[in-house]
Amino acid sequence: MKINAKKINKLAIGTIWALVSVVVLILIFLLGYILVTGLSDISWKFLTSTSSSISAGGGIRDQLFNSVYLLVLTIIISLPISLGAGIYLAEYAKDNWITTLIKTAIEVLSSLPSIVVGLFGYLILVIKFQLDYSILSGAIALTIFNLPLLTRSVEDSIEEVPKLQREAGLSLGLSKSKTIVGVVLPLAIPGIITGVILSSGRIFGEAAALIYTAGQSAPIVSYTDWNPFSPSSFLNPMRPAETLAVHIWKLNTEGIVPDAHIVSSGASAVLIIVILIFNLSSRFFGNWAYRKMTGTTRKKRG
C-alpha cells in the first residue's frame, strides 16, 4: 500500500499529540489528586496552630514559617554569589578551557541528587563546622543546591540584553564595568527576578537536602521575640527547623499521630499552592519589572 506524505504527516502529528496528552494528563491527575484530597483539610486553624506529635488536630504553622524563612535566607546567601558568577560568565569569561571547566562544573553541580547535597551538608556543616541541625546549615545546603540554577538564569538574562545597548554605553564613553552596572544589569533584572522566583519554588519544595541539615524537629518558637540571638526567637538561624516538605516526608514515614494522613494531604496541598503561586507570579513580576524599566511590554522571544 502506498502511504502518501499527507498521511504520514497526520500520523506524526497524532503521535505528538498523544505524547503531549500523556504528559498533561499525568500533571493534571497529580495536581488534581493532591488538591482534591488536601484542600478540604486546609483551614485557618490548620495554618495557624502548631503541629502535634501524638494527638490529632495538629497544624503546620511553624513548618510553613520555617519554609519561608529558610527560603529567604537561602536567597540572601545565593543571590549575590550567583550575580557575581553570572556576570563573570556572561561578560568577562574568555572562551577557553577554564571557562568550559567552570561551566561543566556548574552543570554537574546542578544535576547532583539533593540527598547527596544533604548528606554533604550534614558532614561538613552540621558535624565539622558544628552548626548543628539549624536553619543556617539548611540555608547553606540549599545554596549549594540553588547556585547552579540561579547562576545559569542570571547568565542567560545578561546574555539576552542586546549588543546594541552595550555599544550605546561604550560609545558614550562609559567603561565596561559602568556599562554593565548602569545599562546591562537594569535590562537583565526582569529575567533575574523570574529566575529567582522560579528557583524559590524549587527551594520551597525541597526535602531531601534538608532532612540532615535543617533537621526534623520544629521546636516551639516565640513569634514576638524579635532578637535573632535569643534561642526561642523565631528569627534565630541556629535553631533546628523542620520545613513543610520535610514535615510531609516525616508524617508519611514515621508519623504516629492518628490523623497523619489528613495533615500530610493538607500540607501537600498548601505546598503545591505556594509553588503554583511562585510560578505564576514569576511571569507577572518579570513582566511588571520590564514594564517598569522600559515603559513597554516584553517582546516574546523566538
Binding site: 546594541l164 545597548q165 550605546a168 554605553g169 560609545s171
Partner: peptide, 17 residues
Amino acid sequence: LRKEVGMVFQQPNPFPF
C-alpha cells in the same frame, strides 16, 4: 576618546530609562 568621538547607530538604542 569615545567622549570626544561619539556615535549614533543604525538601530536607535536609548537606554531603558
